[in-house]
Computed example of a mutant assay.
Amino acid sequence: MAKGKLRRRLRRFDESLSDQPVHAITDRVQIPSDPVSPGRRITTRVVYALGALFAAVIIVYLDRHGYRDIESSPNPDDPLSFLDCLYYATVSLSTTGYGDITPVTPSARLINVLVITPLRVAFLIVLIGTTVETLTTQSRQVYQIQRWRNRVRNHIVIVGYGTKGRTAAAAMVGDEIAPADIVVVDENAAALERAKSAGLVTVRGNATDSEVLRLASAQHAKSIIVATNRDDTAVLVTLTARELAPNAKIIAAVRETDNEHLLKQSGADSTVVTSETAGRLLGIAVQTPSVVEVMEDLLTPDAGFAIAEREVTPKEVGGSPRHLSDIVLGVVRGGTLVRVDEPDVDALELGDRLLYIRSADAER
Rank of each mutant, 00 (worst) to 15 (best):
S92V: 05
L262T: 07
S94N: 06
R153E: 13
L50V: 04
E342T: 14
R8H: 11
G279L: 09
R214Y: 07
V292N: 07
N150H: 05
R214D: 12
V254K: 00
I125Q: 07
Y98N: 08
I357Q: 12
V345C: 11
V201H: 03
V46H: 04
V157F: 05
V294I: 13
V203F: 00
T336C: 02
A347I: 15
D63C: 08
R147C: 07
D77F: 13
G330L: 14
D344A: 13
P343S: 09
V312K: 09
E260F: 03
A216F: 01
F54M: 07
A178I: 04
I116P: 01
V237K: 00
V126C: 07
K264T: 12
I357P: 10
V338F: 15
K249N: 11
T300A: 11
I158E: 00
L110Y: 10
M1V: 14
N229V: 04
A303P: 04
L135A: 12
T202W: 00
G4F: 08
G199N: 00
R339N: 13
T134C: 06
T117H: 12
A49S: 14
Y98H: 11
P118W: 10
T136I: 09
D69F: 06
T228R: 01
F54D: 12
P74T: 05
D77L: 14
S73A: 15
N150G: 08
S320Q: 02
E363G: 05
T313M: 09
R40Y: 14
Q30S: 04
E316V: 08
Y356I: 14
R322Q: 15
D14I: 14
A362M: 05
A227M: 10
P289V: 08
S33D: 09
V184H: 09
P314Q: 03
P79D: 06
T117D: 11
L53R: 07
T131E: 12
D186F: 00
N112I: 02
A52S: 06
G205Q: 02
I31T: 06
D69Y: 05
T271P: 07
L281P: 02
T277S: 09
I58R: 07
V312F: 00
V340K: 02
D258M: 03
G99M: 07
D232C: 01
V237A: 01
L281Q: 11
A241G: 02
V142C: 09
R151S: 10
A360S: 14
I31R: 00
S94I: 01
A253C: 10
V47K: 02
T130H: 13
R140S: 13
D302H: 15
L324I: 10
M172W: 06
A207L: 03
W148F: 13
R151N: 11
E293N: 10
S210R: 11
V29N: 02
V126E: 14
L348R: 08
L200A: 05
D19I: 09
S33V: 11
P106Y: 05
V345K: 03
R28E: 01
E342F: 11
E71A: 11
W148H: 15
I307Y: 01
R28N: 06
R12K: 15
E349H: 10
V132Y: 15
L110V: 12
S223Y: 06
A24M: 15
A55K: 06
L10Y: 03
G51Y: 15
L354K: 12
A191E: 09
S72F: 08
S33R: 13
I251E: 00
N188L: 06
E349S: 12
P79A: 03
E349M: 12
D346K: 13
